[in-house]
Design a binder for these strands. Structure first.
Lengths: 192, 192
DNA sequence: GAGGCATGTACACGGTTGTTTACTTACGCC
DNA sequence: GGCGTAAGTAAACAACCGTGTACATGCCTC
């Protein structure tokens, strides 16, 4: 007799590691397939855990979405650079950093679901727009924040979600410069 | 005995009317719930027809999506006005016309589905970007078309899909003026 | 006016979804 | 060192999905 069958390779039990593995997998899938087209079983499989654990740790799929949002939304790094270089810094972060556009893609692709939609708006408002407007300062802080939001939502959507020929990676240089200037103009509006 | 049961109220048979009823319902639902979150049975119910007719007339749900796209994408009316008033005209059309933003909302909300995504890009490229670039003319026609696309995708997404406080209907006047100017600047770039 | 085909209907099929339940197993504390 | 509890597992549930099929019926043509 060789030995008793090895059963399971004695997988370590670690709740924290499991939680973060699920959250990592959820971020990846939500930001590429959106809320509705991402299945709980898919997330669990990518995370390498049992699918029932998603329900255990996050209550429901919507709970997982909210937890994923809360984890990845953080614009504070962008608000600590040189104010006069905000345009070029933003372009560099979003164009050159891998998956910096993930959170926005996740929200856009999930906007078709009412629950995910509500969660997205709530977090976008409190974690992005309010700090951004405060950083911009008068005059018309909120409206300028809204314009930045328009510009970048449009750019990232056109680039990543509905990519068209003129925005292909090879031809994006000219658009980058335009975007830098337009972004900087909104920031500088207060210091005219 | 009162009479034999009245069965059905002798509903008129009209294939064309049925087709357009399905397409109207599909446009409404696709542009508010997206492709995945819209069921064939929902479309049929809103159209007042039997759900099997969707399959009969359009082959599949994806076929219905393509047919709906083909029916509502038409930017030619916007390219026949005064070139010097393009900015204000665009703003008027999209802000004041009921559901002018429907097609874009439909494409964004459906971008999470691979089949719908491919169909959207195909139509956007051939029916919008190519005619728009031709109308803009040199220099850099395609890149300027891409910038207009960024601007308007961002605006409509921020306004309708992820509506935030500074873009609420009551406070949109200032953003409208900014958008008019930014749009017109891109158009005028060739005639500097 | 009768036949034939387009139109419309009812229903079932296989598959997938999110969620829950009952159960097993490993770890840490007394 | 045994035991309780947290961690993980397997399976099943009901509901819904897109699609296909088999059947009924109304309109047009000959």
């Amino acid at each position: 007799m060789p030995r008793t069958e090895p059963k399971k390779p004695t997988r370590q039990r670690d709740a924290d590691r499991t939680r973060t593995a699920i959250l990592d997998a959820a971020r990846t899938l939500f930001s590429t397939r959106g809320f509705t087209n991402t299945g709980v079983r898919e997330v669990a499989e990518l995370a390498g855990v049992n699918s029932a654990l998603v329900g255990r740790y996050f209550g429901s799929k919507e709970g997982l979405y909210r937890a994923t949002l809360e984890r990845i939304i953080d614009i504070s790094p962008m608000l600590h650079g040189d104010r006069r270089r905000f345009g070029v810094d933003m372009v560099a972060i979003f164009c050159d950093t891998q998956d910096a556009s993930g959170p926005l893609a996740m929200m856009i692709l999930s906007a078709a679901d009412p629950a995910a939609h509500a969660a997205s708006i709530e977090f976008l408002q409190t974690k992005v727009m309010v700090p951004l407007a405060a950083w911009l300062g008068p005059p018309n802080a909120e409206e300028r924040a809204a314009r930045l939001n328009i510009l970048w939502t449009g750019f990232l959507t056109s680039w990543k979600l509905l990519p068209l020929e003129p925005l292909s990676d090879a031809r994006i240089a000219s658009t980058r410069r335009w975007l830098e200037a337009a972004t900087q103009a909104i920031v500088d509006e207060g210091t005219g």
